[in-house]
Design a protein around this nucleic acid. Structure first.
Lengths: 234, 234
DNA sequence: TAGATTGTTAATCGATTAACAATC
DNA sequence: TAGATTGTTAATCGATTAACAATC
């Protein structure tokens, strides 16, 4: 029991056992912590952080407990060190090497985003079939012909693939990534990719968010039960 | 009891009570159905559809039960009519008018995506602060100066806002949308937006997906318990 | 000390799974 | 009829909430 608790609080490895929803919230907390940091705040309570991040205070407590964040009773958490801890856990100090497959609009936009640049991943090469794109760097990343994907990805030892190709091209692109030994694929195609079990695919389903927003329960008529829903959608 | 069941199966309004996760899966099913349709398949079982969509068969059954999809025992579901039903439920035949706030890389990429073009929403105007973008259409949508957001959004009667501005500009942009009467905001900024309770915000947290992919449990060592996890991440 | 806040525990809620009787 | 598959029900699982004793 005590053993387990201790390992949980130590290295990155043991921490991997965090629940998925909790992991997804870490960037949110980090974001809020940076806001506090910019405002000169040194210490925050779960309540304050929860309000800033837009989640419930109970969830923050539970997540931090699981994370092993060192808080002081009656005081709260040290903003700077907690932010540092999250960065470490998420690997921002030691990003994974990644390749971008599909250097079109979405792919290039992703490379430019603050919450992706210089965080978990470092994009070391991009690939596309469009001859107009090949040979010209996109946001500082060289674009190669898709035919060279396996060769170049192997030589650069990239372990992550960002898949931003049209649906029709996704299965082929995924199998090339797999052939290049890529174990983690961040896919922006809604279609299911058939990959070996040592490969993890994270599907980012943009149309699901839109469906939820438009077909989900409207907050205009919350009179159904007691207590309003949270203001901001999760 | 019977009453409730009946209304559930009727108009779009009553169907709104579907669970969020189920709603998010509908585009997935639609996608798989189209693949079957293209292959000339007229009828599918929950098992086949589940495999194609990359979810469990039990979930498909449950979702369809809730959705009120008309299946035939021993046969399955009619591919074409089920796809039509999902389209209707998600409002693809009668899309909401939307404005795009932030006509940069991500905004323009979203407008170009197949799973957004001509589905739930119809983008009727775009806004940006960059003078280079203002005046030039992006993917067929005119870009106006951000200063005219409220005026133009009101006159076009748009009810949905797509927020693809940098984090720093997001709160201001959101309050302009609210001032223009926009009740549904699809935000690609991770920061919490403070909006009145009649406004729904759907935060699309891209960095959460990346965190999950990289810090989540690796599938390489599934020996922990019995039965492997699903191959493809949700 | 008194006040505030942590971190845990137990209770609730919701979603997924699995099994099966009803149906074509 | 026999085989396949639906649609529902009960069981399981996991995540969120709320309450509170321990701690600074």
């Amino acid at each position: 029991m005590i053993e387990e608790r201790l390992t949980l609080r130590r290295g990155r490895r043991a921490l991997k056992s965090m629940a998925r929803p909790a992991i997804r919230r870490l960037p949110l907390y980090h974001n809020a912590l940076q806001q506090f940091s910019r405002a000169g705040v040194k210490t925050v309570s779960t309540t304050a952080l929860a309000a800033a991040a837009g989640v419930s205070a109970a969830v923050v407590k539970r997540d931090f407990s699981e994370f092993g964040a060192p808080g002081k009773s009656g005081v709260g958490y040290a903003v700077a060190s907690l932010a540092r801890g999250i960065e470490h856990f998420l690997g921002w100090h030691n990003p994974s090497r990644a390749v971008l497959v599909g250097a079109g609009g979405l792919g290039s936009a992703l490379l430019g985003r603050e919450d992706i640049r210089g965080r978990n991943i470092e994009v070391v090469a991009a690939f596309d079939v469009d001859p107009d794109l090949v040979g010209t760097p996109v946001r500082g990343v060289m674009v190669y012909d898709a035919g060279r994907l396996v060769e170049i990805t192997l030589s650069l030892r990239a372990g992550v693939g960002i898949l931003t190709v049209p649906d029709a091209a996704a299965p082929e692109a995924a199998s090339l990534l797999v052939a290049a030994g890529v174990a983690k694929i961040w896919s922006f195609s809604a279609i299911r990719l058939d990959v070996p079990e040592w490969v993890t695919v994270k599907r980012e389903m943009l149309s699901a968010g839109l469906a939820e927003l438009l077909a989900g329960p409207a907050p205009t008529e919350p009179a159904g039960k007691k207590g309003n829903r949270q203001r901001c959608g999760a």
